[in-house]
Design a protein around this nucleic acid. Structure first.
Length: 435
RNA sequence: UCCCCAGUAGCUCAGUUGGUUAGAGCAUUCGACUGUUAAUCGAAGGGUCGUAGGUUCAAGUCCUACCUGGGGAGCCA
């Protein structure tokens, strides 16, 4: 093995054309035509094609090629040459081959269609496929864009606890023993802590995993998912929606700017993403109900909008749609009463186009001490569990609002994925705890 | 929790009104081929038809229960 040659990543091969290098990676395809043989090598940055010419390579190297199997890990020494016929655009004219880790011939993922059950059972191996890599490059770009967006706007990132006492929503909590304190619950949201942090730091956001023990079996649900939750002091509901549309438009823009090859790998219709520009569409709940009724829905004022209603509402628009100011009964206790119509609260859901549904839920928070206590009692929630949260209204209450954006739903929409489970490396669903 | 659907080779599937020895493609193994692109061509191996019970002369096929998974509803991001 040539120890003196550089070992660039495959994406860097163009800087080494004509010079011997060592490529380290995994074998994705092996083909032989008798006296010329090809092995496609993947290293996570791209693929290149190692070319073995029987009359050129040493006999023992030719012999070793014959032992190559899909997903064997290898160190290949050779000279990279631009080659339009080669996958990845580069041939590697091979002089030496070391098989680092062999791979038995029963590798479960083939370059053909598989059922979801099989793919999910083999998620640890499925991640190696080009499509999955494209998704995770885009997810990474979105995560980085989230941090850039808020950093540029002077937000502080605050990490909120995942182990909490019973607070937040009531249903669907994962519980665990917590020493002498009784039960602890995995966080369903960081929002309440985010509100405390907003009073301390002004503009904050959280970015972390959240947990819902709902027995939901749909293409939009996970039991563990990542959420970005900004909370901003002195923002009212209108400010809140402006922040949301700026944010979502920025994420889409960043992916369009940085991830064209990945969008192409996923065969995403980019024209649809290019239409996602501010301002988004705004529809008042009351108007939405009227529109839905005229379209034949039997929804009544006061009902929450079902998935079918949402789809019906969004079908006429090519950009995301805000539905604002829902009836009080349909929404959480912490949302602020709408002064213009006290039957409703100052909130918004943001519905993504193309049937991807709700990606954001946001609201202005109730900042009146007495009204908040009254709402907690109305909902039948245990007042003492919310002691510290209510104190945020006692000591210097403040107008504030915020929202939660579901990362996997956003990734699924931007990538055009048929199911949210592909938007996270190791999805947790009702029937999936491993791998 | 409710509704619908599926389970046959390692993978993806076909299998007729119930009828002899359950098939195909891919993958695997062996052979051929000096530019392959999910290479091609030839040959071979590979099955407790999800589990248990039932109907029948006869069950992959019909019935019941269960198991496993998928899609949707509700709830939400």
């Amino acid at each position: 093995m040539d120890q003196s040659s550089p070992a660039p990543r495959i994406s860097e091969l163009h800087d080494h054309a004509g010079q011997p290098v060592v490529v380290r990676g995994w074998v994705t395809h092996v083909r032989s035509s008798g006296k010329v043989a090809f092995a496609v090598i993947r290293d996570g940055t791209g693929v290149c094609q190692a070319v073995f010419v029987k009359s050129v390579v040493p006999p023992e190297v030719w012999e070793r090629f014959g032992q190559l199997t899909t997903e064997a890990s290898v160190l290949v020494t050779g000279i990279p040459k631009p080659e339009p016929r080669a996958p990845g655009g580069f041939d590697l004219q091979v002089s030496d081959l070391v098989i680092h880790g062999e791979s038995p011939t029963d590798y479960p993922i083939q370059p053909k269609e598989h059922g979801v059950d099989h793919l999910l059972d083999n998620r640890h191996l499925w991640l190696r496929s080009p499509r999955q890599r494209a998704i995770f490059v885009i997810r990474n770009e979105i995560e980085q864009a989230v941090h850039d967006f808020y950093y540029q706007r002077g937000f502080l990132r605050v990490d909120t606890p995942l182990l909490t006492a019973a607070i937040g929503e009531r249903a669907g909590l994962f519980e665990t023993e917590y020493f002498e304190e009784g039960k602890a619950y995995l966080a369903q949201t960081g929002q309440l802590y985010g509100e405390a942090a907003a009073a301390a730091f002004g503009k904050i956001y959280t970015f972390g995993p959240t947990f819902r023990a709902e027995k939901s079996k749909t293409r939009r649900h996970l039991t563990e998912f990542w959420m970005i939750e900004p909370e901003v002091a002195w923002n009212d509901s209108a400010d809140n929606m402006r922040l949301q549309e700026d944010f979502v438009a920025y994420l889409v823009q960043r992916v369009l700017e940085k991830c064209r090859p990945q969008l192409a790998e996923l065969e995403r219709d980019v024209a649809k993403l290019e239409k996602v520009t501010v301002p988004f569409v705004r529809i008042d709940y009351t108007d939405a109900v009227a529109t839905l009724q005229s379209k034949g829905s039997d929804v009544k004022w006061g009902d929450d909008l079902g998935a079918e209603d949402e789809a019906l509402l969004v079908e006429d628009y090519e950009k995301p749609v805000f539905v604002m100011n829902y009836p009080k009964e349909a929404k959480a206790f912490y949302m602020k009463e709408n002064p213009a119509d006290p039957r409703t609260v100052l909130c918004d859901d943001l519905l993504a186009p193309e049937g991807y549904g709700e990606i954001i839920g946001g609201s202005q928070r109730e900042d009146d001490y007495e009204k908040m206590i009254a709402r907690i009692k109305e909902e039948g929630l245990p007042l003492d569990a919310y002691g510290w949260y209510i104190e945020l209204r006692k000591y210097g209450t403040f107008v504030h609002s915020g929202f939660g954006l579901g990362l996997e739903r956003t990734v699924a929409w931007i990538c055009g994925l048929p199911h949210i489970r592909e938007a996270i490396a190791f999805p947790r669903m009702m029937h999936r705890l491993r791998p």
